[in-house]
C-alpha cells in the first residue's frame, strides 16, 4: 500500500522488465567531429534533399492536417480554425486574424530524451516556423479570429532541417484547411562543408559544418519569407547556398502543389 502512496504520477513508468537499449555499433567511427570537414557526403549527393513523403488529411477532426516523413524526420501537423480565440487580457481590437504556431517534440523524438514542457528549444523553433508562415497568411480575411497550427515532431534529425520540414508541412496543412494564403511557403536548409553546399543537412552533418543556413520562400510569387544563419560564413558562400536552397525550394513547391491537387481530386472523387 505504501508503494502506491509514494507513486509519482508525473513520471512515465516503464514496464517491470526492461532491457538496455542497443545502440548502433561504434558511433564514434562515423562521427564527423573525429575527422572535421569530410570531403564526401555519405549516402547522397551534396545537392540532394532527403526523399519526402507528404500526405494531407491524416487527422479528421482538424480543419487541415499533414504528415511529413523525410527518412529519419517525421512530423504531424494539424491546423484548427480560423476559429474564435479566447479573450486575451489587454488585447485591443484588431481587424486582422492571428496565427499561432506550436511545435512540440515527442519525448522519444531525439537521440536524447526530451522532457515534455521542460524543453526550451521547441518555443524558439515555433517562432521560427511562425516567422516563415506569417508573410504568406492573409490574416485580413479572418478578422478577430485565429488559426492555430500544431506541429508534433515524432522523430527529428537536424534542427534546421526540422524547421524547413515543419514550414512545408504547415503551409500544406493551412492550404488543406482552406485558409487563404498568398502562396505556399517551403523551406530548405544548407550546410557549408569542405567548401561545398550540402543541402538538407542531418544533425551529424550540421555539427561538422562551418556554417549552416536556412531559407524559406514562396516560390509561386518568387519572394523570400525568412532567412537564418549560424556559424561562420562569408557573403559569397551564403549567396551560393541561398541559390541552391531556392532551387531546391522550387522542387519542394512542385511536390506540395501535387500533394494538394491530388488530395483535392480524391476528395472530389475524380482520382
Amino acid at each position: 500500500m505504501s508503494t502506491l502512496q509514494n507513486f509519482d504520477r508525473r513520471r512515465i513508468t516503464g514496464p517491470d522488465k526492461s532491457l538496455p537499449p542497443v545502440y548502433d555499433s561504434s558511433p564514434s567511427a562515423a562521427d564527423p567531429l573525429a575527422s572535421p570537414e569530410p570531403a564526401e557526403r555519405a549516402h547522397r549527393s551534396p545537392s540532394s534533399v532527403r526523399p519526402i513523403f507528404l500526405q494531407t488529411g491524416l487527422i479528421p477532426s482538424a480543419s487541415g492536417s499533414t504528415y511529413l516523413e523525410q527518412s529519419s524526420q517525421k512530423l504531424v501537423c494539424a491546423v484548427y480554425g480560423p476559429r474564435q480565440q479566447p479573450k486575451a487580457a489587454g488585447a485591443g481590437y484588431s481587424d486582422r486574424g492571428t496565427l499561432t504556431v506550436s511545435l512540440k517534440f515527442a519525448p522519444f523524438s531525439s537521440s536524447r530524451r526530451r522532457a515534455p514542457n521542460r524543453d526550451a528549444e521547441d518555443r524558439q523553433l515555433s517562432l521560427r516556423v511562425q516567422a516563415a508562415l506569417e508573410p504568406a497568411v492573409r490574416a485580413e480575411t479572418f478578422p478577430k479570429a485565429g488559426v492555430d497550427v500544431f506541429l508534433h515532431v515524432l522523430e527529428s534529425d537536424g534542427l534546421d532541417a526540422l524547421v524547413c520540414g515543419a514550414v512545408l508541412a504547415a503551409s500544406t496543412a493551412l492550404a488543406d484547411a482552406g485558409v487563404e494564403l498568398l502562396g505556399l511557403v517551403v523551406g530548405c536548409s544548407a550546410a557549408w562543408v569542405g567548401g561545398r553546399t550540402w543541402l538538407d543537412p542531418s544533425e551529424q552533418e550540421a555539427r561538422g559544418a562551418r556554417g549552416v543556413m536556412g531559407l524559406t520562400c514562396l516560390p509561386a510569387l518568387g519572394t523570400v519569407a525568412s532567412v537564418w544563419q549560424t556559424g561562420e560564413l562569408g557573403l559569397e558562400e551564403v549567396e551560393q547556398m541561398a541559390d541552391e536552397c531556392r532551387r531546391a525550394c522550387d522542387e519542394l513547391h512542385h511536390l506540395a502543389v501535387k500533394v494538394l491537387l491530388e488530395s483535392a481530386k480524391k476528395r472530389l472523387g475524380r482520382s
Binding site: 484547411a177 494564403l181 483535392a264
Partner: peptide, 24 residues
Amino acid sequence: VVASLSGTIERVNKLVSVRALRTR
C-alpha cells in the same frame, strides 16, 4: 489574378473565384 486557396476555379462572366473544398 492569383489563387489564394486550394480548390476549384469558378467563373461567373467576368468574376473569378476559387472555392475551397474544406472551409469554415
